[in-house]
Amino acid sequence: MKLTARMFLIIAVFFFLDVPLYWWLSHDPTGTAALTMAFGLCGMIYFYLAFTVRRIGPGPEDRDDAEPHEGAGEQGFFSPHSWWPFVLAAGGAAMFTGIAVGFWMCYFAAPFLAYGVYGLVFEYYRGENKHY
């Protein structure tokens, strides 16, 4: 994970240096905004990975002498039968369609988006999947 964090840092630095150069050569506000957002996203991913590797320590992928079986096993918990990502994606798609087509649609999509976020976050706090 340390190598992956370093890779995202290098990409973020590239975007940081590229944004002013791109704007100076093209004066294109759309491309400049897209490159700025790409810099921000790469920076956030770098921060998350660097924070996580400091918290849990280096993994087998960070060592040169590691064996493949050291990386086997549980990688995390992923809900196998959840419908909440679908509800969240449908609400988000309707919201962004409303931004593109007509803002009136956002008023109808926002409750579905909020309901999807609520359901995904609190999925394991109630019902048959409740964790104690």
Rank of each mutant, 00 (worst) to 15 (best):
M95T: 13
G98T: 06
A50F: 09
I45R: 11
T30K: 11
M105V: 12
S82A: 05
P85Y: 03
G116A: 11
G102H: 14
G43K: 01
A72M: 15
L35A: 00
A89F: 06
L41R: 07
A33M: 15
F14V: 05
H27G: 04
A89M: 11
E70I: 07
E70M: 14
W104R: 14
P111Q: 09
Y48L: 13
V19I: 08
A109Q: 09
D65I: 11
G127I: 08
W84H: 15
F77K: 08
A109G: 07
F51L: 14
W23C: 01
F112D: 05
Y132L: 11
L3W: 05
G31P: 02
A66P: 08
S26C: 08
D64Y: 10
L35V: 01
P60S: 12
G73P: 01
A94H: 00
F16E: 05
P68F: 05
M95L: 15
L120K: 13
R6V: 03
A90R: 02
V13C: 08
F112L: 13
C42Y: 06
A38K: 01
W23M: 00
G43D: 00
I10V: 12
P85N: 15
R63M: 15
G43Y: 00
E128T: 12
D64V: 10
G43A: 08
G73E: 03
P111F: 11
P68Y: 06
F77C: 12
F112P: 00
D64K: 12
L35W: 03
A94G: 04
F103D: 15
F112N: 00
Y125T: 15
T52V: 11
A89R: 04
A12T: 05
C106T: 13
L120C: 12
A89T: 09
H27K: 05
G91C: 02
G127R: 07
A100W: 10
G98P: 04
G127E: 05
F51H: 10
M44L: 14
A110M: 07
G127M: 11
G127D: 10
T30L: 15
V117F: 11
H81W: 14
E123T: 03
P58E: 14
R55W: 13
Y118G: 10
Q75F: 07
K130Q: 14
M7L: 14
G76Q: 02
A50T: 15
M105P: 05
D18Y: 09
